[in-house]
Design a protein around this nucleic acid. Structure first.
Lengths: 175, 175
DNA sequence: ACTAAGTCTATATACTTTGTATATTTGCAT
DNA sequence: ATGCAAATATACAAAGTATATAGACTTAGT
């Protein structure tokens, strides 16, 4: 095993490819959707608005640079999930239906983007079988991504809208 | 703040929406791409093949039910990144260029899917500014997702192809 | 020289997200 | 009661991306 390796290692030299021919199209798609970003932003701004009358979609859209019609749909989802209160008619608008301390990132993500796990077979709330999978019970990939899910789930379940608002008061330069 | 809340709470009842009208189109897109899944599978099968001669693309494709032409591109990426050794001509094929113990999920993801973080402004290797961001230094969302990134990064940096192969020998029913 | 493999570039297809348009409903204010 | 302000609902258009396929080229073994 190891002699094969060192053999390969030495032969590799002739296979070094110049950077210019590498594929630079990076996929950013498994990242947070704009929908989710907008949702968090709306909840944050409404969380800061707790003592005020309901805030209109138009105003949130303007302040956060979100397309109004798109935001409407997002707020509707959050409302149907019980996180927002809405009032129609003149003087109407949206406000939080829970305390900012009680709205966690994990809840929002599940409403707007769906599963937290990176593979469907590792999802708690949106589980479904991977098509290509030979045997899910022994699948090592699945096990690895269950661990990943647990790690990110922990953070997402501990971070509330209130936390985010609180943290906006301090600066960071750490990365 | 709290009296407004309880007020909202009581008014909510009239706003309960039947499930049937809710949006059931769940986004599965920020999940692992097929490209990455195929990459991991290929590395795993090659990891089990360490003592054998190079394995042909066609064979990997067949065993793992991966479209051959698509797999070609993926293996090429992995090879250009130094993880695979390839040999042309008769008797050619692919083999690992590192020990399975030394190939980590985080490396593979960065080659095939790009960033680990869920927002570009929280990415270590693929950082770029969020367009919509007012002030990155105080952004609470960014801070939260730096924490998420660190959590999943830890697991992805600890899990190697060898770990995955090892774990395939045991069953789990835990979720 | 022939054949078996990987390499490279371009392009087609399908699917999602993102954003827009239009019509409708609800409720406040006068 | 009427008009206006706001949310609700549904459908659809636009843009972008992943996924897959095609074909010509290069390299190496026999």
């Amino acid at each position: 095993m190891t002699n094969r390796l060192s053999d390969n290692q030495s032969q590799l030299k002739s296979y070094i490819i110049p950077l210019s021919t590498q594929n630079f199209f990076i996929s950013f798609v498994y990242m947070l959707s704009k929908k989710t970003k907008y949702a968090i932003k709306a909840l944050v701004i409404l969380g800061k608005n707790m003592t005020q009358p309901p805030m209109q979609i138009a105003r949130i859209a303007e302040e956060e640079h979100i397309p109004k019609k798109f935001l409407e749909q997002i707020l509707l989802d959050l409302r149907n999930a019980g996180y927002l209160y809405s009032k129609k008619g003149a003087g109407g608008g949206y406000s939080l239906n829970k305390n900012p301390e009680d709205i966690y990132l994990v809840d929002i993500l599940r409403i707007t983007d769906g599963p937290i796990a990176m593979v469907p077979c590792a999802s708690l709330k949106f589980y479904h079988k991977c098509e290509e999978c030979h045997d899910e019970v022994t699948c090592g990939i699945r096990k690895a991504f269950i661990d990943v899910r647990d790690a990110s789930l922990k953070v997402l379940s501990e971070t509330s809208i209130a936390n985010i608002i609180e943290r906006e008061k301090t600066s960071i330069d750490l990365m």
